[in-house]
């Protein structure tokens, strides 16, 4: 039990003393998860809008598929991405294995269904009159998409926060694709896994608390953003 308290003390020490290993892992975590979020938002928002806005044959089945993808096991994503970006794989030439962009690719795949599903829900829950209003005021298709997403911005922000939480705390992809390389691809979560494997439970707790603190900081800045876009 006492390692929990030790971990708490150690977490503060790590942060206050600017421990370079910890900051390297924080940076790796923020880099890969932010890049993953950027990609999954760019690809996920239009898809989510399309899925939420239009009615078409098979929509229900497609929703079920997307909802199932919400439960994608991270290790499966890690293995699939590894298969593609391994030097033997079809995308091996790009040299993504054991790099942060490689992790970001896997995490973007993880985040994409979250963004799509929650955006679709947010767009679906918009008043039907919104579309009529936008179009009767002269919006073309692109403006319709942008304005609808903007109207649904709180739901979409929630989608972003949920997806961000999922990618920031996943271990499977970071470990498999990133390789937990010190100073390079060691993220907060792989560092926690490593320390725990080494039996350094207190350090694991400390890093876990640091990760929680990062999540807190991210959420505080997003809720600040939320107030700005009211």
């Amino acid at each position: 039990m006492e390692f929990l308290l030790d971990g708490f003390v150690q977490a503060i020490i790590l942060l206050v003393h600017l421990d370079p290993e910890t900051y390297s892992a924080i940076r790796a975590t923020l880099w890969s998860s932010s890049a993953a979020m950027a990609v999954s938002l760019v690809l996920g928002l239009p898809a989510g809008f399309w899925l939420g806005y239009h009615n078409f044959y098979g929509k229900h089945a497609l929703r079920t598929v997307v909802d199932t993808l919400l439960s994608l096991p991270t290790v499966l994503v890690g293995l699939i991405v590894y298969a593609f970006i391994s030097r033997q794989g079809p995308l091996g030439e790009m040299g993504l294995l054991f790099t942060l962009p490689g992790i970001a690719v896997g995490q973007a795949i993880l985040a994409w269904p979250v963004v799509v599903a929650l955006t679709a829900t947010a767009v679906e829950s918009m008043d039907r009159q919104l579309s009529i209003t936008l179009r009767s005021l002269g919006a073309d298709r692109r403006q319709l998409l942008l304005s609808t997403l903007w109207e649904a911005r709180f739901g979409i922000l929630a989608a972003g926060v949920t997806a961000y939480g999922r990618v920031m705390t996943e271990v499977g992809i970071s470990m498999m694709v990133g390789g937990n390389i010190k100073w390079a691809t060691r993220t907060m979560t792989t560092a926690i896994a490593l320390e725990t494997n080494k039996g350094m439970f207190a350090t694991g707790v400390a890093l876990g608390l640091v990760l929680l603190a990062i999540a807190f900081a991210v959420n505080v800045s997003l809720s600040f953003l939320r107030r700005q876009v009211r």
Binding site: D127, Q129, L130, I132, T133, L134, S136, L137, G138, A139, D140, Q143, S147, E151, R153, R230
Partner: peptide
Amino acid sequence: RSRVTLLPQDPYLMNRSVFDNVAYGIKL
């Protein structure tokens, strides 16, 4: 577009100021 316009029965105001709601169509 913007020559024929419909005022629906339950008009929807966008989550922005009155000015921005009225200006939306002009800006488009």
